[in-house]
């Protein structure tokens, strides 16, 4: 059992937990993820390691409530226990030897991009951070990002905070102002459409772009193949070969179809979860 030590509520649907998981904290690195299962009947869901403290033996996760399991998780409080928590999984982000890197976090993707930006900065790179959210309410960790980056640019889709525009708009301005030759690498993490849009744009500039894919998963150890994705001419398993990939090689259309695989079932689980009629769904 893994204890929730701390809970922060960033918005009604975005929450942070600090979890007591010394085994994971001891060896994890930026870019890796965990899989958790709340209770015996629960699903195994992957979440990126947003921060860690090796001395305290803790792992921080930030998640957005999108379906049954994340909603159930969001309803838990500090002091509660999570049944299973396994990690670190996946390959760490490769900290490339570049002078400058732009780290783009969209929505809840700010959490996973944070340790990566920090790792680049600790390695002595110039890190330009771009973070965006739909509106001010959904914005979190501006302070932590500011500390993890050399410079930080913030935007909201609706203009309710700092400025109006998508992260791609900001990225374009950065590339245009600094010159594409001075931006050798972009790391982009967020919803699939955002990562895809970033890749479409950087492709035109010829800037290498690393994305962190969130394929559906079961075991997270390379055993089931559920997380497979086409990258270039090859089929890769996101959980062991990734989650980071060259975004220009990813078959986004296939990934998006595979992500919707269980849509009807997810809907059913959610409706049952939110049903208050006493059928047992609300547990």
């Amino acid at each position: 059992m893994f204890k929730i030590l701390e809970k922060q509520v960033f918005s009604p649907i975005i929450k942070l937990f600090v979890i007591d998981a010394p085994k994971v904290a001891k060896s994890c690195q930026a870019g890796q993820f965990i899989i958790l299962r709340i209770h015996e009947e629960g699903e195994r869901i992957p979440l990126t390691i947003a921060d860690f403290d090796r001395e305290k033996g803790t792992i921080t996760i930030v998640f957005q409530e999108v379906g049954k399991t994340t909603k159930q998780l969001g309803a838990m409080e500090a002091g509660d226990y999570i049944k299973d928590f396994v990690g670190p999984l996946g390959e760490p982000t490769h900290i490339e030897d570049v002078d400058t890197v732009v780290c783009v976090g969209g929505g809840v993707g700010v959490a996973p991009v944070h340790p990566i930006a920090r790792a680049f900065k600790e390695a002595g790179k110039h890190v330009i951070g771009i973070m965006g959210a739909r509106n001010q309410e959904l914005m979190f960790w501006e302070d932590k990002m500011r500390a993890a980056c050399s410079e930080l640019l913030v935007t909201t889709d609706d203009g309710s905070y700092v400025r109006k525009g998508f992260v791609t708009d900001v990225l374009k301005e950065v590339i245009e102002s600094k010159g594409k030759d001075n931006i050798p690498l972009v790391v982009a993490i967020g919803p699939q459409p955002m990562m895809r849009a970033v890749c479409n744009m950087t492709k035109d500039y010829g800037i290498k772009t690393i994305v962190s894919l969130n394929a559906l998963m079961v075991d997270g150890t390379g055993m089931c193949g559920c997380c497979r994705v086409s990258v270039g001419d090859e089929t890769k398993f996101v959980c062991v070969d990734g989650p980071d990939f060259d975004g220009h090689q990813v078959n986004w259309a296939e990934l998006s179809l595979r992500s919707a695989y269980f849509k009807a079932e997810e809907q059913k689980a959610l409706e049952r979860h939110e049903c208050k009629c006493g059928c047992g769904g609300g547990k």
Partner: peptide
């Protein structure tokens, strides 16, 4: 749906 993991 008593158990959360679907199969289709």
């Amino acid at each position: 749906p008593e158990w959360d993991t679907p199969i289709k």
